[in-house]
Nucleic acid binder design. Structure first.
Length: 291
DNA sequence: AAAGAAGTCAACCGCAATGTC
DNA sequence: TGACATTGCGGTTGACTTCTT
């Protein structure tokens, strides 16, 4: 017996959303919160599949979405983050306040690639960096993955390590959304907008965000990332969501006097530099080893 | 002014990850 | 532990708009 499709295809509307549909969706989510996308269309009186509703909400209707032109800072940041993260649009979007992954992806494909080419910069493709190697994974590869068979290589210290599992160091994405969880608790709201809730000032990050990638056990490979941009610790859930999503300036207990977006960009840029130096360090180290 | 080309971007699709039972 | 459900992600499509000839 096969898996049931996400929605019955018959009788459902496709294509652009009407303002009436937008209104229905917005009203429903305002009343009941996000989640339960499968049953949402029925409950909200929409002839759409749940996926379509989710996409519409996440990319266009959600409060706090920034529309319009990208500024130079954002361009710069996207290019830099892309050179570091590849086509991890959701990760990149998580570092750009109010921008969605879809928007950034489109912007990259339509504007930035051209811009880079004009500047005679080869945009990195990061084909082998992406989480999924291809849409249709060959069965052989699937079973290999399942069995955990991987090729070996030398790490920085010259020890044998598995290389097929890509380990990258990056901050966890900070979702710029009032992510009402399935149980609608604010505890989860704050968690969903922050990186983690541990007491440590540093956090182990796993860009792979993928259990197949695994957590690095070798202490030399475990990297930490400063966690000073933890909004959950600075504001309670309501306050955070209201101030942030309304796009207003905020003052995190006198921690920052910049408007939210500027503050975020500043912090993201700092994180980027840190990542970059981390990357350079690893590459330098590997060069030395190879020599 | 018309036709075709090129650009843009909202939306769709399939797959993988994660959650639940 | 496995099967199924749900969610999220990234690649792709196609309708629409703008530009060029």
């Amino acid at each position: 017996m096969g898996r049931t499709p996400c929605c019955a295809k018959e009788g459902l509307r496709k294509g652009p959303w009407s303002s009436k549909e937008d209104l229905l969706l917005t009203n429903y989510i305002n009343q009941h919160g996000e989640g339960q996308w499968r049953s949402l269309p029925n409950n909200a009186g929409l002839l759409r599949c749940g996926k379509s509703c989710r996409l519409r909400w996440m990319n266009y209707l959600r409060p706090g979405i920034k529309r319009g032109n990208f500024c130079e800072d954002e361009d710069d940041l996207i290019v830099r983050l892309h050179s570091l993260l590849g086509n991890r649009w959701s990760l990149i979007a998580g570092r750009l306040p109010g921008r969605t992954d879809n928007e950034i992806k489109n912007y990259w494909n339509t504007h930035l690639i051209k811009k880079l080419k004009n500047a005679r910069v080869e945009p990195k493709l990061h084909k082998n960096f992406t989480k999924r190697k291809s849409r249709k994974q060959p069965q052989k590869e699937k079973s290999r993955k399942k069995e955990g068979k991987m090729s070996n290589s030398n790490n920085i210290k010259g020890e044998i390590v598995q290389v097929e599992k890509i380990k990258v160091f990056a901050p966890k994405p900070i979702r710029i959304s009032c992510g009402i969880s399935r149980d609608n608790s604010f505890e989860n709201v704050t968690l969903s907008t922050t990186t983690c809730s541990s007491n440590s000032n540093f956090e182990e990050v796993d860009l792979g965000n993928n259990k197949d990638n695994g957590i690095m056990s070798n202490e030399n490979e475990v990297k930490f990332f400063p966690r000073d941009l933890d909004f959950g610790e600075l504001l309670d859930g309501d306050q955070f969501c209201d101030e942030f999503l309304m796009g207003e300036s905020c003052n995190f207990s006198n921690k920052c006097s910049l408007p939210m977006n500027d503050y975020m960009l500043e912090k993201v840029y700092e994180e980027y530099l840190l990542l970059l130096s981390e990357n350079c360090y690893i590459q330098e180290d590997q060069k030395e080893k190879n020599c």
